[in-house]
Each structure stands twice: as C-alpha cells, then as structure tokens.
Design a binder for these strands. Structure first.
Lengths: 141, 141
DNA sequence: ATAATTGCAAAGCGTTTGCACCCTG
DNA sequence: CAGGGTGCAAACGCTTTGCAATTAT
C-alpha cells in the first residue's frame, strides 16, 4: 500500500482522536476493502493472508475502539459473534441478503413518527432503535 | 406445582408435537413466570433455586427446541448471548428498557409499506425483518 | 520521554456435544 | 420395550485480559 493511501486512514483516525498505528490503519483498510460486513476473525484472516503482522487481540481491540468512536457499525445478525462494517454518516439501517450476506445500506428511515407514538403510548424515553431487514437479493434468486 | 397447573404446559408442548417431560414443563413454567426475557442461564438459576432438578444443557436444548417450534422468541439484544421469551401469536416487535430490561410487546407493525418499497428499489425478496427499540421506561427515569 | 499500544498465551464466557443412563409413550 | 430425553463433564468458538515489550507523539 502506498504511503499516500495510508494517509486517508491516518487522517480518519486522527479526526476521531485515535492514535494512528500501523495496525489500526490496516484494519481500516481491510474494512474499506470489504463491501459487506466482516467478523473480527475474517478481518484478521484477510490481513494475515496479505502478510500484515497483526495480532488477533489487536483486531478485536481496534474494532471495539472504532465502534465506540462511531467509525464502524457493529451488527449482530448471528448470536455469538459480531460483524463490523464501515458506516456512512448519520442514522441508517441495513438490508442483508440471507444467501450471500451482501449488505445494502439504507439511508432513509421512516420510523420516527411511529417511534414518537410509541414513546407516548408506553411512557418510554426512546434512545435507540435497530432495524434489520433480511431477504434474498436479485443475484441469489 | 399442582398437577392441574402442569396440565397447561403439557398440552402446549403436545400441541407442537413435542414430548412432554418434567424438564420441558419446568422450563415453560419458568418462561411463563418471567414477564420479560431471560437467558438460558437465568432460567436454569430460577429453576435450581426452586429445587427443580434439571441440567443446564437440558435448558439450552429445550429453549432451542421451543424456539424452532415457534413457542418462544429468541432476542439477541446483547452479543454473545440469547434471551428467550414466550411469544404471543403472530408478528410483533419489542420495546426494551435499557435499564431494567423490561420488555413491551408491540402488536402493531407499520413497516409493511416501507418494506414493499425497499423490495422494489433494491430488487430483494424480503423474507423477514427485526426491529428492536431501546429506551428508558417510566419507572427507571 | 512517556504514555499508549501491541503480541502472546491464558483465561473467560456462553453454548454445544458425546455418551451412558433413564424415562416417556 | 424402543427411541427419545437427560445429566455430566469435556470440548468449542468467539472474545477479553494480564503483562512485558514495543511504538507513537
């Protein structure tokens, strides 16, 4: 990878007040290369295969850090493991293909009105909501 | 527990083509006693505390079985563990209090129109969707 | 310089499984 | 009585952690 390309990841990390290390830049690159979501183990394997010297624990620590800084999304489609993916700005949900695991990022969320109604009806202060839509994409049919 | 009370659980199990054993009846009773959701471990502890002789593995096996037979819902609010709860009939979503983990079952789902639009727009055959709304309930505020 | 980050290996966690025994139907 | 169900303990897979060595600012 060119020093030029690394520059993007470095800036992204520093923008979030995170120290730019070789390993963190590598994880960010792996995420950028993956159009869908990936588990920590998959990212580790991807990097190892390309000769990146990085420990599995570091991958986990980095993903947790990036997630808490809002750089990556953590999806829990299956119990017992988390999937991560670079997230766009703002609030959004995902449409996942059950066959090939392709993920489409949805940018519109029509739920606000419904949520407001729920808040009143059940006397909840609603802080968050997740939506995950599953189906089969055109290519898998 | 009275033999009378056991009868309800027995019928419920047999209705789903599941053999009624002492342990399965006990798990069903534990679920019925829990207004919110519970993990396998919590159900095991609840039963053990009441002197029910049951193995942890059996609790896991029973919950998996009941889930695949549509008797219980499995929610994954937290990574690495599943929560189970008796589910009402039909399609519904949950409103969960992040503080006390109280769960409110929502019976209206206004998403159908939105989903239809997504299906067309992204050429997906949509098979399922999950929604989970998190907030703080009135009692915890 | 020095405080943060890393790697390794060990521990932790919830969950699953193999197998001999037991019970339901 | 036959086949499914159970208990135990060991195995599992993913994730986290302790600690000494390394690295970024």
């Amino acid at each position: 990878m060119s020093p030029q390309a690394q520059q993007n990841e470095r800036v992204e990390l520093e923008r979030h007040g995170v120290r730019a290390t070789r390993q963190r830049i590598a994880v960010l690159r792996a995420l950028a290369a993956e159009p869908n979501d990936a588990t920590a183990q998959e990212i580790y394997a991807w990097l190892a295969q390309r000769g990146e010297a990085i420990g599995l624990a570091t991958v986990y620590r980095t993903l947790a850090l990036l997630n808490s800084n809002g750089v990556v999304d953590a999806l829990a489609h299956r119990p017992g493991e988390l999937c991560y993916r670079l997230c766009g700005e703002g609030h959004h949900h995902h449409l996942v293909c059950g066959e090939c695991h392709r993920v489409v990022e949805l940018d519109d969320c029509d739920l606000d009105e419904w949520l407001k109604r729920l808040a009143v009806e059940h006397k909840f202060a609603i802080s968050a909501h997740t939506v995950e839509v599953t189906g089969i994409c055109a290519d898998c049919r």
